[in-house]
Design a protein around this nucleic acid. Sequence first.
DNA 1: CCGTTAAGAGTTAACGCTAACATAACGCTA
DNA 2: TAGCGTTATGTTAGCGTTAACTCTTAACGG
Lengths: 338, 338
Amino acid sequence: MVTIKDVAKLAGVSMTTVSRAFNEKAVIKDKTRQQILDIAKRIGYVPDYNARGLVTKKKFVVGIFFSSMGDGTSRSFLSSIISTAYEALPDNYLLSVNDIRSVKDINGLVRNRMDGVIVVSQSDRDNDFIYQVKALGLPLVVINRFLNDPDIRNISGDDLRGVKDAMTYAVKQGHQRVGMIEGIPGFTSSTQRRQGFDQAVLANQLIVNPGAIQIGDYSLTSGQQAMIEILRLPKEQRPTVVFCANDDTAIGALRACYAAGVRVPNEISVMGFDDSYYASMSVPALTTVRKPILAMTTRGIEDLLKLIDGDTLSADNHVILEPELIIRESVQAISALD
Amino acid sequence: MVTIKDVAKLAGVSMTTVSRAFNEKAVIKDKTRQQILDIAKRIGYVPDYNARGLVTKKKFVVGIFFSSMGDGTSRSFLSSIISTAYEALPDNYLLSVNDIRSVKDINGLVRNRMDGVIVVSQSDRDNDFIYQVKALGLPLVVINRFLNDPDIRNISGDDLRGVKDAMTYAVKQGHQRVGMIEGIPGFTSSTQRRQGFDQAVLANQLIVNPGAIQIGDYSLTSGQQAMIEILRLPKEQRPTVVFCANDDTAIGALRACYAAGVRVPNEISVMGFDDSYYASMSVPALTTVRKPILAMTTRGIEDLLKLIDGDTLSADNHVILEPELIIRESVQAISALD
DNA sequence: CCGTTAAGAGTTAACGCTAACATAACGCTA
DNA sequence: TAGCGTTATGTTAGCGTTAACTCTTAACGG
């Protein structure tokens, strides 16, 4: 194994100088650094992270924990978060990807091997884990879900605003009678999306007939089921646009419409939330709200790194990022309705 | 920070004895070990991996590299592989999940920080990376794709066999005129699936009319396009079953049939490959071939660990696992055809 | 031209752990 | 009960790096 000693000998300098050449902030003459770096490259020296970490007390590992990896909203949820996280992370950091559910020994896994932790949280059930990490005193950032704790750095998307924007768009298209298929009751995301819907209804004096709001569980089949119920309404009471709490639900709703012979968007408009892979592939392609998940990830890593370095962050631990409305084909202007 | 020294002092033993208590294979009296472990737990001692690794030359990190994380065949491709990998990995190992494309410095990232590497390969384009790792001399296992190199441990699924099984099933259902939508030309997977198809045709003396085999590119739209072509054939020449090189293609094909008013499976049967999430959700639900990806992962990790420990593996580096035929609704017995 | 300062480089010790060797304790046989 | 092999534990050194400190040299003002 080629060590810092070998480089030092060849370069005719001390070990420390070599060490300095590899550590950005150190004072060392540019020329010396360059010579050392050249020699190191030539003989294939790379610093040993175990030795380095032993003295600096660092692990150069950031852990990223998912609520439940299989349930990511979109097909690329997991992968695009991971890729984005790497981009925001310095080259010398490793990203350890984990499923919260499968963490057995938080002491052995987290405390001892990671400099900090990002939790990509999908539900309240993650709080246990989050507070265990917090208790460890490890740098921690929770993203993807609003966390009501001023002591924990939290980056979330403004779901309420996203739904409101989507509904406002529908109103601009002339829709007045509206409906919704909700997410799993109790989930913060469900609550916020419902609130966004309600606020839009209030602000625009929209009509919500009984039966126009159904409870779903974020699954395709629940969307299908819910839409069947909505379609039971007589046509003149039926909403002209249905906002679905996520894309899977919306695709289920689309399917129910197709089965019932109700054309989308000609006879009824449908909106989703998430912008999953199949949102663009569905027929008609889904108009939906895209969470700023990549921006959340980038910001999350940035903040985590600052926390790791002991820097202070902005006073308010809640960072809320704006979602984006993705307009496709599943909403039609009301004047154009058949 | 609480170190091995603190435990030693409290337990009235030497540091080495404490070290032994934490290392399974060491000789130490059970009673002593238990006392030490108890004390360690009480004062919250956990071994420092940097220190441990410095002397043992280990990193306790396994890297898993994906061709291109966003393109996983099924929605759960990435997540289920990661979860499965963790299950096969000892608790004290970390899993570093990476995208091959985004590896900048293989020396800094891989050589220096990982004990071994699993490559979940999807295409020939990964070979560059694979051979770079091999050149590093690091323990390496390639899974998910057949790799024609006797020097590299390789775990793959038998795609050819999978397609053949699927076709045999179709033949048993009475199908004689068959067609196929192929994958991206040049990909090993495309070639093998085509060969499986061809072998089934030969073995069962099936009829393949001109135009019944189309080239796709594994995308939904290519499947749609290809099926449109196939449906141009006069009904009596048209295949009664079309095997699609993957599920996305098959779903595209389904869509084309729907658009053309051709009912599946009543008028034409369709099969896919992958068993992706939407295979079960499509209408009709897709009969498809499921790759043994989880078994590949488990075996891959097991073999990698042996390689890391310096154990020898079975002589033949090619391990081929059997796929599974998932029978759903998209294939109908020919006697039942309308 | 001396004294002060700062930049650049060197010396030394320590980080927490385990391997290798050394020693002690134990249990058995003759 | 001496002698031996075996099992259990202790002692010592070193893994590769950086932090803290020291030393050298050049620059500069008065």
